[in-house]
Design a protein around this nucleic acid. Structure first.
Lengths: 221, 221
DNA sequence: TGCAACATACCAACCGGTCGGTACGCGTCA
DNA sequence: TGACGCGTACCGACCGGTTGGTATGTTGCA
């Protein structure tokens, strides 16, 4: 008992509490939802006390806003560094994005579903601050697809009048819906199916056929 | 102040508590989410006490399961009696279904979004009973579209291999995603946009052009 | 008379949030 | 060189209220 407390291992080093709380919030909220995740539970999982929590966040709502922003900075590099950006053809980059979303949809549902999608469903009517932060995060993610969609529209004149922003938003709609259905069915199959349908839609719209191998959710389970 | 308590108006008549609680659950959960809706709040809004609640439901989880089933019996007649079933062409019936979903998407978001979609996002990992009930409700709703999709596939051979069940599920995916995006943006526009894209997809797939008037979310806001 | 449909009172655990205090790194000046 | 002041990071007890749930009545209709 005389051993000195090895504070650097048993507990996050001083200064990490804020990030640790944000990361715990992402994990727990994705699994349990926003309201079911209590401040006490967050503090317990990262090994700090409530004093630390309220030193960094004015309220639970403030944590929600910060977590939505953090989710953006957390996921943006994941997609930015993915290799589908290498394709020369903008439409191939979009197909690649959809394939990439399918490829990371493995393991437990709470590990690949969306923090902001889950959170905004609970808070859209009770906290405008959280709602706005989640909306902004989704908008920002969709916006990063707009360049490729704009180039695709220029390169392959679409059969109907569409805009890049419109298509980018629809892409996110399909993905978010895939999350909901997947959670309800307890398998990632609905998400993979939805990605395949979306790709088919784009191939019809831009009149550029799909390669054979890109058929998520058709045969494989 | 001497007026006798008019129990028949201020409080539901004896025997109605169960249905009243279910209906209150639908309304409150759609607005606030599952975990944020407490048993006390439910009892307060319908004017009964906890004794009544636990007389009808063994637990909050049991209420969730019952509410998911109730949601199905509550919404099924709404769609069954809609007039889009009158169309002779099965694809027109499906277009009509999508237009109908757009036409009821007015007013506050919590009035036209989906109870089971909201609930399952919160409970998929913490209550398998609720998750299964929500999944079954979505599946049952999708299944009611399968007949029309099967007829459409027979009538208009699709450009790629699809199944009626597959398309019906994808339809629900798009709608659920539209709800999420709409909540995040605070307007029904994303849902209307998504319905328009889905119709466009079906028109490509079945090679049956859309009529002009059916263009939700394009010009109108 | 019996039983379904409630009401009432109560419980321990937990909720978000407050508050006084403490440990510690860092710049400053004698 | 060191000690002083100060700001940041964090602790942990505590608050009033709420949570889901229970045990025990009371009411009213068949």
């Amino acid at each position: 008992m005389a051993a000195r407390p090895q504070s650097s291992t048993v507990r996050p080093v001083r200064g990490d509490a804020r990030v640790a709380l944000l990361e715990a919030a992402l994990a727990l909220v994705r699994k349990q939802g926003w309201a079911a995740t209590s401040i006490d539970q967050l503090c317990r999982t990262v090994g700090v006390t409530k004093g630390a929590f309220f030193h960094h966040f004015a309220s639970k709502e403030a944590l929600g806003v910060a977590a939505a922003h953090y989710w953006d900075t957390f996921t943006a590099p994941l997609f930015a560094s993915a290799k589908y950006h290498q394709h020369a053809d903008p439409l191939d980059r979009i197909y690649g994005y959809l394939d990439f979303r399918g490829s990371i949809a493995g393991g437990p549902l709470e590990d690949f579903t969306c923090f902001v999608g889950t959170t905004v469903q609970e808070t859209f009517a009770t906290s405008d601050a959280i709602r706005a932060a989640c909306g902004e995060t989704i908008r920002a993610h969709a916006e990063r697809l707009e360049g490729d969609f704009r180039a695709a529209i220029a390169l392959y004149p679409p059969r109907t009048r569409v805009t890049a922003a419109n298509l980018a938003r629809y892409t996110q709609t399909v993905i978010q819906g895939g999350f909901v259905l997947s959670k309800a069915q307890g398998t990632n199959a609905p998400l993979l199916e939805a990605l395949a349908h979306l790709k088919q839609y784009l191939s019809f719209l831009f009149e550029k056929p799909l390669k054979k191998e890109t058929s998520h959710g058709k045969r494989r389970r």
